[in-house]
């Protein structure tokens, strides 16, 4: 177990902390690094806020008519799916 982390190791633990509960020792060594390192603190805040933003975005595009164009379903695809639906209904 390393006590002094470099930024590369710290960023890895920051990411791990977003996907699992960190073991106590890792939490402490990370905290120790973050106190001294402004860059990694910023990194942690940014990717944590990014997660919250993506969560809101996902809710928004599920509930509201939000997704901007231009990609459209191709004309061929539209008519194919329409005829499949018609077939299934009859």
């Amino acid at each position: 177990m390393k006590i002094i982390l470099n930024c590369k190791e710290a960023a890895r633990i920051v990411s791990e902390g977003l996907d699992s509960k960190l073991p106590f020792t890792k939490k402490i060594t990370l905290r120790f690094h973050l106190i001294m390192c402004k860059g990694c603190t910023l990194y942690q805040n940014q990717i944590t806020a990014l997660r919250a933003l993506l969560h809101d975005y996902n809710n928004k595009i599920e509930q509201e008519d939000f997704l901007p164009g231009p990609p459209l379903l191709s004309q061929d695809g539209q008519s194919r799916i329409k005829s499949l639906i018609k077939k299934a209904l009859s």
Partner: peptide, 18 residues
């Protein structure tokens, strides 16, 4: 259901493409 493609086809397509 025969209106689904016109109403939602493009939106679902964009959602899936993402």
């Amino acid at each position: 259901p025969d209106k689904w493609v016109d109403l939602y086809g493009n939106y679902l397509y964009r959602f899936a493409l993402g």
